[in-house]
Design a protein around this nucleic acid. Structure first.
Length: 605
DNA sequence: ACCCCCTGCGCG
DNA sequence: AAAGCGCGCAGGGGGT
């Protein structure tokens, strides 16, 4: 059963039961306690909640201690569908892209509905307000004034019905429908993960910082001792030449411009101050500079102020942006959640009596390519545990060469010996090479490509089209930037088919894992498997339940009581199997997950 | 004071 | 010959 839902003033809300085709089945119902009404439906009717967005509805439910099993997120589905349909003008790439859809022209009613939905979205609270009830209420109250709940509900119902038609009209409705469902479920996971938080030990983090940087500076803008020391060494290394330049200040190692200038004054001209460039330079400033850059990076991105801002009550609670990346990967807002330095994983420690189940999909992208392309020889290599090792025989037994060849094929690399290795790849694994080559060609020609579940890459910009279109006069000289732009887009689409399909698999794995974990919870009789509470309360009540606490492209972390670790690990491997079957159907390609049960994230793999 | 773009680097 | 892909964030430096 589908039920449309929007929040109203205070605790209230509006509900409307829908038919399977999205049409209204019953009149609109107003409830005083929305969370209670939702909980009641969850007990008996296996509803799929149809709501404008998780930000508008689910956060509020979670705050009230109510989880749901399934939803249709209208905003996320909209992004998938309009992403697909925006590509129509660009022309579809055969084999990898869809055909034009028979989507009905948006009539004014739908257009109005969409405008209304947008207005509501603009007022949605961010996940960050989740942990701050006072702010949350204030924002929510503000949102209520701008958009009439009844009008919003009607808009949700209309758009949802239209979306079901758009999905059914897809070239592969089952897969595209799975994508919309998984994306929606992903937003449930995202909100729940923000609430749960990644266990984070501030004292461990602080200890690492102090060890490397020296004690925390008294004043915020101040350089920690070790950084100040290194900055002085860098400046000193340039001092001799600088002394002859009147009015010159000490070189600031944070300023690429000053560094380039200072190096040039000493006769060293560089294209940039990147690590890779600096590494090979012979100058007394380089050694302290490289160390400075590494430590300064840590201090500015994940230093004490980060700790103050992002860690509360032993938990790091970033906001995840589902589908925030064109490829369908998640993005995050605040705290650089998806760029946590490996070094700081030392600070991610399970609660007492709990463990972290860390699972990582091994060599996901090349395996995805093997499954996508249906390359028999390649798929055979992908049946085992180490794909690159299996491929190595084709490259004179050198695993490293096999890896370079694969990465070059997926990224469009051609430097160094890549060209030679690609030739081998093309010869031994023609279907796999052909798949990414076709995607690259489609991109170069301005067409779009799609992931295995039908996520579509953006069409080229107007700028790109203007730049790359054939000149009206065939004798006219072509802009040299045209070829460059064309090849750049080719690399993008080449990578998109792999990265986006890997994201499809990872997303389906993640939401399947959520479902598997819910089974454990209900088996254990820990509540109904749906209702969370503040995690402290759960610890006290029944020993706790497994919680997804982190997701990073091809890696998940489950935080759970020690005695549930085995069950959680089994859930992970079942989820991977489910994802492989749902996304790729029958395939001989294996998608192994390396799973570790650890106290500390840094101890995984 | 603020905004915007660039550079550089962390993660996958 | 050359430019393998995708992000978020901080700081510098120029603009207003």
């Amino acid at each position: 059963m589908r039920v449309a839902v929007v929040p109203g003033p205070g605790e209230s809300g509006l509900l409307r039961e829908l038919r399977d085709d999205g049409g209204p089945a019953r009149p609109v119902v107003r409830v005083d306690d929305l969370a209670a009404a939702v909980r009641e439906y969850e007990r008996s009717d296996e509803p799929r909640w149809v709501w404008p967005s998780a930000a508008l509805v689910y956060q509020r439910l979670l705050q009230a201690g109510v989880r749901v099993a399934r939803c249709h997120d209208v905003a996320l589905a909209e992004a998938l569908i309009s992403g697909r349909d925006a590509a129509l003008g660009a022309g579809a790439a055969p084999g990898t892209a869809g055909t034009p859809m028979g989507a009905p022209a948006p009539d004014t009613l739908l257009a109005d509905a969409r405008a209304l939905l947008k207005a509501a979205e603009a007022n949605a609270p961010s996940s960050q307000e989740l942990g701050q009830p006072v702010l949350f209420d204030a924002v929510e109250a503000g949102a209520g004034e701008h958009v009439d709940p009844r009008a919003l509900l009607d808009a949700v119902v209309e758009i949802h019905a239209d979306q079901l038609r758009c999905i059914a009209a897809d070239e592969h409705p089952d897969k595209f429908g799975l994508l919309a469902t998984a994306e929606s479920a992903g937003s449930l996971v995202a909100a729940e993960m923000t609430l749960a938080g990644l266990p984070w030990r501030p004292e461990v983090h602080d200890g690492l910082l102090t060890e490397m940087l020296g004690p925390r500076p008294k004043l915020p803008g101040q350089r920690p001792a070790r950084l100040a020391e290194l900055a002085d060494q860098v400046a000193a290394a340039f001092a001799k030449t600088r002394a002859q330049m009147p009015g010159s200040r000490p070189v600031n190692p944070d300023s690429p411009a000053q560094l380039l200038q200072a190096l040039a004054a000493d006769g060293i001209r560089l294209s940039s101050t990147r690590l890779a460039v600096l590494k090979d330079v012979d100058h007394p400033a380089i050694a302290p500079l490289l160390e400075y850059k590494e430590l300064a990076r840590l201090a500015s991105a994940f230093g004490w102020s980060w700790l103050d801002t992002w860690v509360r009550d032993g938990k790091f609670r970033p906001e995840y942006v589902v589908g925030g990346v064109v490829s369908g990967r998640w993005a995050s807002r605040g705290g650089g959640a998806l760029q946590i330095p490996r070094l700081l994983r030392r600070a991610v420690v399970a609660d007492p009596g709990w463990v972290l189940v860390v699972a990582d999909a091994a060599q996901l992208e090349p395996r995805v390519l093997a499954a996508l392309a249906g390359d028999r020889a390649f798929a055979d290599a992908a049946m085992g545990g180490d794909l690159y090792a299996e491929l190595a025989t084709a490259f004179g037994g050198e695993r490293a060469k096999a890896k370079v060849a694969m990465l070059s094929a997926m990224y469009g690399g051609a430097g160094g010996e890549a060209g030679q290795l690609l030739a081998i790849l093309r010869q031994r694994f023609p279907a796999a090479s052909g798949y990414v080559e076709a995607a690259a060609r489609a991109g170069e020609e301005g067409r779009v490509v799609r992931s295995v579940l039908g996520r579509t890459c953006p069409p080229p910009s107007a700028n790109w089209r203007a730049l790359t279109e054939d000149p009206a006069d065939p004798d006219a000289e072509r802009d040299p930037r045209a070829g460059q732009a064309s090849r750049a887009r080719g690399r993008f689409t080449r990578n998109f088919v792999v990265q986006a399909s890997a994201a499809d698999w990872a997303l389906v794995m993640l939401v399947s894992l959520r479902a598997e974990l819910a089974k454990i919870i209900s088996r254990n009789g820990a509540g109904d498997g749906l209702s969370p509470g503040p995690s402290a309360a759960i610890h006290d009540r029944d020993g706790g339940r497994p919680e997804l606490v982190f997701f990073q492209h091809d890696e998940v972390i489950v935080h759970c009581p020690q005695d549930q670790a085995d069950a959680a690990a089994e859930a992970v491997s079942r989820a991977a199997a489910v994802a492989s079957r749902l996304v790729f159907g029958p395939t001989r390609v294996a998608f192994p997950l390396s799973t570790a049960v650890v106290d500390c994230y840094a101890d995984a793999k």
